[in-house]
Nucleic acid binder design. Structure first.
Length: 570
RNA sequence: GCGCCUAUAGCUCAGAGGAUAGAGCGCCGGCCUCCGGAGCCGGGUGCGCAGGUUCGAGUCCUGCUAGGCGCACCA
């Protein structure tokens, strides 16, 4: 499934090129949308052909232009210098696009290019016993969105939550809990209690460095199967997971596997043995490392014999390949960990696993708060729940003010508030750092999730109106010849035609923001159209309603890929 | 010190090597007894610096500057 307009144009350009004796030229790559409408709908610049054909680009354009005859879709061709500018027939193009969108419905934009290949996505992966804060949100929703995008392109996906449920931090928590823990509070609000313990540990450790040693010893005891340590760890883990599940439900996120770092305690020994057998382990300052080219060595075991993050990631990668035989594995983890993944991939390569080429670190910029980094240790965090609650509350207030008759206010407020938070994060290129501020996060005007959802609700409202007026009862749209001949209708339809391209790009770049931005553009176009033209009261109301239905469908499909709901009213 | 990332409008950000660099926020001014004003229309300022590659560079390369992140027993 691709762009119904561009496909036609590209095919015609290719035919014309063939007539000039040019084969295998990637027309789709070169063809572009001109900067101004007066220059046509699509343009084909001929500069690159000048070298191939050894002719002046202007002349090539001239010859090409003559060979691209009018078709049902192509109305005329104008050559301007080295550009072949193609003008489409408004009515026919709009009609075809609208019909294609409505015919495919929820499937519009999907394709089967993935051909059943498997993508494993490692995302979210919060640390147990630490609050789920705004910093974790990015991994969670970028991963979730990428999973949906790849599914829509015919890939099989496996969502893995690689829980941070192992490591020295648990030594710290065990030590802190033994000294200052409050049983009742742990059961009532586990994450808060664990966070406080964690923060207090670091405060006290500043004056008493021996605590750090004690914590390392406690973790070693845990790793060696100490009964008391294991019991506490299990409890911390269970209680934390319950809280995370609540947040995941709100975000509509689910996982196929919750195998966290702790799941690899046995596999790790096999991995270390394998490294040993392959002669890759070197002793260095008492620790075991694998040396790598062009970067610092990867630490495999500490001098006390305990394992490290990288060791567990290695074991996990091997296990995942054995389990899923993935064609791609995405690690949706913050950019600060680039070196870590370069090292892990480097070790896998030295181990001789060809599938390391399928592993990819999907890095994203970190979230800062003002000029301070979020720091769990300092307790300087914004809880995601708090952000979601505030967003939902504000939406609720706006509904009360502007649409008090709305049904299911709470459900809609939840969808819009959560959608605002998600969209705010997905609207930017993932690699950019984001500075969190409440004003931006809780703004619902302009380039925001609620704007897109509002546009969807407005389209839904117009369609309901069409039914009420008996113009298009029960969605009985029909687009006859001549119905969509207008310029504005065409521009909207052209935007709809581009949706599959946006999805494709989002997948190729692993960049959900491509879809977010596409939706903003589409919504702007639609709202302009809406304000400029009557729909229900117009002579071609049925056709315009079909166009509105197509717009609504595409917004819904796009929001779904971002993990955002599309309410019928708000 | 070494490595990675970033630098575009007052702010937040888009920009497929191609024609005249675009949105949102903020500010100012408008929007019809009519389909939802979370909307629409109008108003202006900009590619960090210096070279290079190319028919053509905001986009690619090199150097510099500024900011962020990372660099051994945390994850």
């Amino acid at each position: 499934m691709a762009n119904v307009l561009l496909d036609h144009v590209a095919a015609k350009v290719e035919e014309a090129l063939a007539a000039l004796g040019v084969q295998g030229f990637d027309v789709r790559e070169v063809i572009e949308i001109p900067p101004g409408r007066e220059l046509g709908d699509y343009a084909f610049p001929c500069f690159q052909l000048a070298r191939v054909l050894r002719k002046a680009p202007d002349r090539i354009a001239e010859e090409l232009g003559q060979r691209i005859g009018p078709t049902e879709l192509i109305e005329r061709v104008e050559v301007v210098k080295a550009y072949v500018n193609i003008f489409l027939n408004r009515d026919e193009s709009s009609r075809r696009v609208v019909e294609a969108v409505l015919a495919r419905g929820d499937d519009y934009g999907k394709s089967d290019v993935g051909n059943g290949k498997t993508v494993v996505l490692d995302f979210s992966s919060p640390n147990i016993a630490k609050p789920f804060h705004v910093g974790h949100l990015r991994s969670t929703i970028i991963g979730h969105s990428l999973a949906r995008i790849f599914e829509s392109l015919g890939f099989k996906t496996v969502r893995i939550n690689h829980l941070g449920d192992w490591g020295t931090q648990f030594g710290k928590l065990i030590v802190a809990y033994r000294r200052w823990g409050d049983r009742a509070r742990l059961e009532a609000e586990p994450i808060r209690e664990l966070l406080d313990l964690y923060v207090r540990f670091h405060q006290e450790a500043e004056n008493d460095p021996s605590l750090e040693d004690e914590a390392r010893a406690a973790f070693k005891a845990l790793e060696d199967g100490g009964v008391e340590e294991t019991r506490l760890w299990q409890e911390f883990r269970d209680l934390s997971l319950e809280e995370f599940e609540r947040t995941y439900r709100r975000l509509g996120v689910h996982f196929d596997s919750y195998l966290g770092e702790s799941a690899y305690n046995e596999a790790i020994e096999r991995t270390v043995a394998e490294l040993e057998a392959k002669g890759l382990l070197k002793e260095s300052e008492g620790a075991l490392v694998v040396e790598l080219e062009g970067m610092p060595p990867c630490l495999i075991k500490k001098k006390d014999g305990a394992t490290l993050y990288a060791t567990r990631d290695l074991a996990a990668a091997v296990h995942r390949y054995e389990t899923y035989r993935f064609d791609h594995m995405f690690y949706v983890v913050g950019a600060p960990q680039q070196l870590h993944f370069a090292q892990v991939f480097g070790v896998l390569k030295r181990m001789g696993y060809p599938w390391v080429e399928a592993c990819e670190h999907i890095a994203f910029g970190h979230v800062r708060f003002g000029d301070e980094a979020f720091s769990t240790r300092k307790g300087n965090v914004i809880f995601l729940e708090e952000l979601l609650d505030q967003a939902v509350a504000r939406v609720r207030a706006i509904i009360e003010e502007r649409n008090p008759e709305l049904e299911e206010k709470d459900r809609v407020a939840e969808a819009v508030g959560v959608g605002a938070v998600i969209f705010n994060d997905l609207a930017h290129n993932r690699i950019k750092d984001v500075v969190f501020d409440w004003e931006t996060a809780l703004n619902f005007e302009g380039d925001t999730g609620p704007y897109v959802q509002y546009t969807h609700a407005r389209a839904a409202s117009v369609l309901r109106r069409g039914v009420e007026e008996g113009v298009a009862p029960a969605g009985a749209f029909s687009v006859g010849r001549g119905d969509l001949a207008g310029e504005e209708e065409f521009q909207l339809a052209k935007a709809l035609a581009q949706y599959p391209d946006a999805v494709q790009r989002a997948a190729e770049e692993r960049e959900p923001s491509e879809i977010a931005r596409y939706l903003l553009d589409l919504c702007r176009d639609f709202n302009s159209f809406y304000h400029a033209h009557r729909i229900v009261g117009s002579p071609n109301a049925r056709a315009r309603l079909a166009l509105v239905a197509a717009v609504k469908q595409v917004i819904k499909n796009g929001l779904y890929l971002l993990g955002i709901e599309a309410p019928e009213a708000m």
